[in-house]
Design a protein around this nucleic acid. Structure first.
Length: 272
DNA sequence: TCCTATGTTGTATG
DNA sequence: ACATACAACATAGG
């Protein structure tokens, strides 16, 4: 289920491990999860390392560790569609969907990364330099680098792309996923199939403003407590058959747009 | 049996 | 080279 705010919350599930040392690593090296790293490196370098801190950016998480010989270690996790982090008492056997387990004897606990669909990813790098897979993430939509002109430029270049598909592009809307994209378009009162190049300057401004608003609120609610947003959000209505728009009180519609199931309020979001 | 799923990416086409 | 569209990935649940 992870988009921006869920990732921020799930990242903190490993907080109990911060300051503690890794005593053992268990993983399933043949899993697709490890396609973009070398599982042998994890096994070689993580034991003896101390977990120092973590951070989230877009839909990715970074765990910073220091190896026994003081080498900085960078562990990156992407939750894909069904990834989860948890902690549990150390020494318990792993199950099939658990791909990476860091045992921490000091804290008598294990840090677990599970993902049954295996769309998630593990990245790993050692040394002082920030890994490219972390530094290349686009600046957050809640940062000052997410400017109106950047969105304008992006929409010009993607002139024929439906708005819904554009909002899912991580290079410009990092951390936005399917439900946040629908929420943004609903608040901006723009039909998800509108083409990026056809928007008026005011309409682009609405997208820009609502993107920042939805991300900020979602981080404050879901990112802090894992609670769902309130009933005044489209979020609460978009999956239900026969869902009603909380603003117009008229029926919501669902269709595949930009390759993803999309929900919108026809009374509020018009094509023309 | 068939369809869906809060994600990304490789590949084909224009 | 660049933009666009979509199948493919793997598994569970309705």
């Amino acid at each position: 289920m992870p988009e921006l705010a869920e990732v921020e919350f799930i990242r903190k599930r490993w907080n109990p491990g911060i300051g503690h040392f890794v005593t053992g690593v268990r993983l399933h090296p043949r899993s697709r999860i490890f396609k973009t790293c070398d599982p042998a490196e994890l096994v070689r370098l993580l034991p003896g390392a101390r977990l120092d801190s973590s951070a989230a950016a877009a839909k990715q998480m970074l765990f910073r560790l220091t190896a026994a010989d003081a080498t900085p270690l960078w562990l990156g996790l992407h939750l894909g569609m069904t990834g989860e982090l948890s902690t549990r008492p150390a020494g318990l056997p792993d199950t099939r969907a658990e791909h990476l387990i860091l045992d921490q004897t000091t804290a008598t606990q294990s840090l677990v990364f599970a993902d049954f669909r295996m769309f998630g990813r593990v990245q790993f790098q050692s040394g002082p330099d920030t890994p490219a897979w972390w530094s290349c993430i686009a600046p957050a939509v809640t940062s000052s680098a997410f400017t109106l002109s950047a969105v304008n430029e992006f929409f010009q270049r993607r002139a024929r792309t439906p708005l819904k598909a554009a909002l899912l592009m991580q290079e410009r809307f990092p951390g936005i996923g399917n439900w946040m994209a629908d929420e943004i378009l609903w608040r901006a009162a723009l039909h998800p199939a509108r083409r990026c190049g056809d928007l008026s300057p005011l309409e682009v401004k609405k997208i820009h403003r609502e993107t920042i608003w939805v991300a900020t609120e979602a981080l404050a609610i879901t990112g802090e407590t894992f609670a769902d947003p309130p009933a005044s959000w489209l979020f609460q209505h978009r999956w239900k058959d026969g869902g009603i728009c909380p603003r117009t009180k008229k029926p919501l519609e669902r269709a595949t747009i930009g390759g993803r199931t999309t929900c919108w309020s026809p009374a509020r979001q018009k094509l023309a």
